[in-house]
Design a protein around this nucleic acid. Structure first.
Lengths: 130, 130, 130, 130
DNA sequence: GTGGTCTAGACCACC
DNA sequence: GTGGTCTAGACCACG
């Protein structure tokens, strides 16, 4: 698993990592067991500071997503899949709500928003054709 | 014009003010001329510190949205309306793009996104049916 | 006498007026007697606030350049010509010194400065061919 | 790098810092990379408040001269050297123009100006002959 | 009255 | 450790 962080988008790097790990678990690209890359490895592949990765993993542990196995590293908890899959849309929804609230408070119409979503979505699809 | 700031949503207060002023100009609720509330007035109505408002106004000046008339206050620049109107959807789009990118990179389907937008939008409409 | 003020160059308007009056007296375009335009007239021709002109005239009085004649307005003091003529170059020199100091402190060479002065002077000559 | 600010020369301290940083980059005494002193350090050596330095650095960021590396400090942008070097004489020229314009508008001759520059320059050279 | 500058000190997020 | 934000209060310049 490789995280792609964007250091200049305002979102804390550790949080970007946390979210991407959650998505990976929900997707099944990170399986229950010991598959999670070590702090150093993740730091290298994502080109960020080790402390930053450590911080992300710490948060994931306190959420019960990851569990520490002595001397072996961190593993995806058994209950993690269910939890992450449930949070999957919730994480997006949470942020979406803030934006839409700003829009509606400033007189943007429903039509304009739908058009925005449609055009942006189309652009992104082309960006990385799976 | 009254700004509604939310000190706990992570976005700096001065930036919230900047955005709301831009929206107000785009909407026409803030007209070209000398209509912009003084820093002290805005600070009072928004219940924030004077310096915070001053910071927002300063940023707006460096963007060319406001111009300072010595000893008189701040005026909406003539070119501001055009600029703000152009930025209106852009400001929303900018943030929308980040979210959608995260969604698409993590395997959310187009259908799911549309449903999210629809349901959230409906919720917000009810929130403040003016 | 008409003052040309530039509201956007950082120098206080009242100070621009003070300086231009002094230059006018030194040049002889403002003669000893009652020739100085009234506050209102000056404010109109220069398109500035009357208070601003009043402030400038007040400063000129306290320097002894202008004297108040009851019911008639302000007149150029007899000693003013001599004083203004003496200050003529001094006013320029004062500001020149600050710039040159910054230049020399930052490693600009004598040659570069002379070239700057030469080219700028040439540009200005063309700007308003007397 | 140590900034020498003069709190009593009318130019805002933060602007003095901005200009001196630009000169330092143009001179090469501030190299691309992470060499820029921290706000706290600069505040100490220049004997000004931390916020004042922060304000200067913020302006430099919005000009693209500095870039913020989260938790690490501020770095000189790669393009900064070119920009600062280009601005080097421009910053002097900008102020010089205002003075010369005043001079020419008030009948100072080319000869007088050159003599002023020459004598002031000579004086300054002696001031700090290192 | 207006905005602009500066200081002081607090708290937070990040690495 | 770093910068960023916010508050509070003071003083000044300008109109």
């Amino acid at each position: 698993m490789i995280c792609h962080v964007d250091a200049s988008n305002g979102i804390p790097i550790y949080e970007q990592i946390v979210r991407q790990v959650k998505f990976a678990i929900a997707n099944g690209s990170l399986l229950v067991g010991e598959h999670i890359p070590s702090v150093r490895e993740m730091a290298t592949t994502a080109a960020v500071n080790v402390n930053t990765v450590a911080r992300a993993y710490r948060d994931l542990q306190s959420e019960g997503i990851l569990i520490s196995i002595r001397g072996t590293g961190l593993a995806v908890a058994i209950c993690a899949v269910e939890k992450c899959r449930g949070d999957r849309l919730e994480m997006i929804r949470e942020r979406l709500r803030h934006i839409l609230r700003e829009a509606v408070q400033n007189g943007i119409t429903s039509k304009e928003v739908q058009e925005l979503v449609r055009s942006e979505w189309a652009t992104l699809q082309q960006e990385q054709p799976p």
